[in-house]
Design a protein around this nucleic acid. Structure first.
Lengths: 260, 260
DNA sequence: TGCAAACTTTAGCCAAAGCTAAAATATTTC
DNA sequence: GAAATATTTTAGCTTTGGCTAAAGTTTGCA
């Protein structure tokens, strides 16, 4: 699209510019499609990307069922069936009627590329544009489908090639490697362990805010003082000697890695 | 789209997360459309935006002809006719069969909003991500359709609310005001005048590079030493005493405002 | 003025992605 | 192991935004 877009100027009444436009060279659909396929391979439609990411999120390496995808994308089951067939033709998934779809190698790569974009963009929005947790997700969701690989790499450089986003989720490398995450929910730690918060699984804004206010963010090192059997409350001490009592949902959402 | 996208985590084999998804609440098309129309008003399609911007670029306040739009967007004339009708129904243009379309007030606002986005994004890409002139336009073209108003304003703040992009083109304000540009091509200046370069109408990358290398960029103040009748060459002196001889196409593309 | 060239519109198609309703297949339960 | 329930697929439609070919207008030139 937009093979020759002369933006440049013409503020208000002074149109002009029409001179520098050059022969439009009309392309028909099939030629355009061919160019797209060979030269770039990535202008996948927004929808295609959404499905691939959904399957990855739901199933990882396994198979995602029609209903799961339908729920995840808020799309009718029949539409999912239709699209999964399409994705198979495109080579992104292996699909067996009535038994869901799993990503092929190519689908997997594509998923990780989108995840990389998403997490880098979220990092930028949160750290440099002053976005809040509630604003950031939707914006990143739209942007990840619009940016090019060049943009992604330049942004990564701008951000200092971060390995994790502000949630603590790992950012896949350009080569499509996502380092495995060996962290566990805080609730599964044991008293006496020293741990580093690795991520906070999102969704709940108030929770993110609560944790943020207390400095309980990815990277923070804590010592687990007590895991109270009676109510599952976890008592931790931070590096400044501050004591925090975390209960119920919090200890399931805060993930940490053992470091001692 | 994507009403409940739980990205968060599930690196590789650990899917999970499916718990925090909540009821998907399926929406049918008409309800979704209604929400879209009232609550936001802006999720105009990419295409719609492209047409509006094209008309603005081509015609400003006047009417853009089918063929002009067709050429600008590299789309068949028949498709343009179709879309102009649609845009009229949507209230963005006034359209008369065989005589082209001109923007309504609303269309004009929309155009300026897109231009604001485009120019802010270009500024960011050039100044902070190290984009080159040739890379920047296409990327901005895609991004301007994906970002929200919130993003636009945060970006503007990040950039220090610039009044012009790196080409020197004015950036419309949030309120949709585009200050008029009283600059003229350098070729129309007169010997002895002191001028400030206001913009360089783009399209030619080598030209932009050439000028950039010599510091002849927007903001630079020059003294016009001579306008040579015989070949139209303009001789200018920059603030450092450097002398530049500019001929033919250059003196038409470099715009400057008189300041003395 | 009148016709040929240039431009625009109409008509009829196509593909991507959605939807609903109904039919088919799996799974669960008694 | 058979019915009841849940999930999935098929069939048929819709909208958006393209395209081509053919028909209709306007315009430029003799």
């Amino acid at each position: 699209m937009a093979l020759n877009q002369s933006d440049s100027g013409s503020p208000e009444g002074s149109p002009a510019a029409s001179s520098s436009i050059g022969k439009p060279l009309m392309l028909n659909a099939s030629i355009r499609r061919a160019m797209t396929d060979s030269a770039q391979a990535h202008p996948l439609s927004v929808s295609t990307g959404d499905y691939i990411k959904a399957i990855w999120t739901i199933a990882g390496d396994g198979a995602a069922l029609t209903k799961e995808v339908s729920g995840h994308l808020a799309v009718a089951p029949a539409s999912v069936t239709n699209m999964l067939g399409r994705l198979q033709t495109m080579g992104f998934v292996e699909y067996e009627r009535y038994h869901g779809a799993s990503l092929t190698e190519r689908g997997h790569e594509e998923a990780l590329r989108l995840v990389r974009r998403h997490r880098l963009i979220e990092t930028f929005l949160l750290e440099h544009l002053g976005y809040t947790w509630e604003e950031v997700h939707d914006e990143a969701e739209k942007l990840e489908h619009a940016v090019s690989d060049v943009f992604t790499e330049r942004l990564s450089e701008f951000l200092g090639h971060p390995g994790h986003d502000p949630h603590g989720d790992p950012i896949p490398t350009r080569e499509g490697i996502l380092q495995p995450d060996d962290s566990k929910p805080l609730g599964e730690a044991e008293a006496g362990q020293k741990v580093r918060i690795s991520k906070v699984s999102d969704e709940s804004i108030p929770m993110l805010d609560y944790l943020g206010e207390r400095g309980l963010v990815p990277g923070r090192v804590l010592t687990v003082r007590e895991i109270r059997d009676i109510d599952g409350v976890v008592v931790v001490e931070d590096a400044d000697g501050g004591i925090h009592h975390l209960g119920g949902p919090l200890v399931k959402s805060v993930f940490a890695q053992r470091i001692g």
